[in-house]
Design a binder for these strands. Sequence first.
RNA 1: UCCCCAGUAGCUCAGUUGGUUAGAGCGGGUGACUGUUAAUCACUAGGUCGGCAGUUCGAGUCUGUCCUGGGGAGCCA
Length: 472
Amino acid sequence: MTKPSNNSCVSIKQALTGEIAADSNICLQGWVRTRRDSKAGFSFINLHDGSCFAPIQLVADKDLPNYDSEILKLTTGCSLRCQGKLVESRGRGQNFEIQVESIEVLGWVEDPDTYPIQPKKHSYEFLREVAHLRPRTNTFGAMTRVRHAASLAVHEYFSQHGFNWIHTPIVTASDAEGAGQMFRVSTLDQMNLPKNDKGNIDYNQDFFGRETFLTVSGQLNVEAYCMAMSKVYTFGPTFRAENSNTSRHLAEFWMVEPEIAFGDLNDLANLAEDFLKSVFRSVLDRCPDDMAFFAERVEPEAITRLETFIEQPFARVEYSEAIEILQNSGKKFQFPVNWGLDLQTEHERFLTEEHFKGPVVVMNYPDEIKAFYMRQNDDGKTVAAMDVLAPGIGEIIGGSQREERLDILQQRMAHHGIDKTEYDWYLDLRRYGTVPHAGFGLGFERLILYITGLSNIRDVIPYPRTPGRADF
RNA sequence: UCCCCAGUAGCUCAGUUGGUUAGAGCGGGUGACUGUUAAUCACUAGGUCGGCAGUUCGAGUCUGUCCUGGGGAGCCA
């Protein structure tokens, strides 16, 4: 027997936003956040269902048949279905509430004493240990809705600007993209690895007939589609096996990588700026309650700094100028500032937080510290690379114009020790109708960090994967 | 991977120069009270003080080591 259809139920969001007429009889389903009893003969139950930030208040009268047997025993986390009338609230704190006509308990909390999610402040560290239950908290509910809104905003922006979303592969054979350590993908018996005549592991016998890994970037693949579709982007999971233990790194994260044909580094910087502002605007519009919560409880500037970000043009500075600014700052840095060295975290922070007091695009870096595919500038010593630095989180976007000239790309590959045979297909893109093109990579979780004001990247993805941890 | 910090009740924390039976708030249970808002009040249950080894008459407290977590750095998105 199946239960009666519940499709007559509405979401708490629908009930609270005035979408449903007052005095309507409606059905709601959700989880109990708190219960308060009045001996005057009723209980208040705050119910949440993830549809919006606010819970809805159920007013359950003692005359309900299961009042003593069940309703008085509801604790935080219990799930229930409720039938009742949507009425204007007689109390303060909410406009509408539900005058309950019936409550059906769907799931009890079997041991309320040890149920980890309580209506109180928990530490983020503790909540990471219960990552399967933390979406029931205000913070993670809000983060989840904001993450969703930002995802949609990414797709909407690109779609409205004529980009095609390209589903680049997760499994790759490229092992030298220069973007970091890779996770091996293999079906070989780890206890009994086949060897070739040289005594090495014989990957010819592996699933793909060769060594394969999880992708560290969809960029090279998406460039090929860029050379046909003109404007493309990837948005998917990315894997780095670096032993990075910081609040800004994950082993599995989501990356957005647009690529534009017929464009140069300035076009790319324009795209980055317009794109970020559009996403922020969209999240502020879609998630006002969630953002208000972050501003109130997590980061007071959460909303105002996004608004400022949207209004102000990005500062743009040449790498060489940035070095001069740092050298003339009078600041004592722990790491040296010299032309040819990469910017350290402390340098990025000075530029964004003290000198420019806002986001900065740093352009045209020394070629020696950048990847092989970045376009050589005419000065012979820099490449057309750019980083977008944001206050508080550092590098949020890294990108470049790509080297579209076959001979120079081959020289750079040789210089970086890249095996040309592995990248012959990539060189084909320069042999057959090459055009100037450019693209960047955006760490999606870093974007969510910046939007929410949360400070640890493990708290803006449902199940964080970091060195030594792959729970849940 | 390197440097620093932390680990005490289900959770958040206090615990003095080493000294009897380790405390509080929240959460749970019981009761009182109230159109309540993380309600309030009273009572109550709940702890091998991260593991192991050591110093000491005596260790939550000191030492070593391991584990776990956090912050910072490197690497990067």
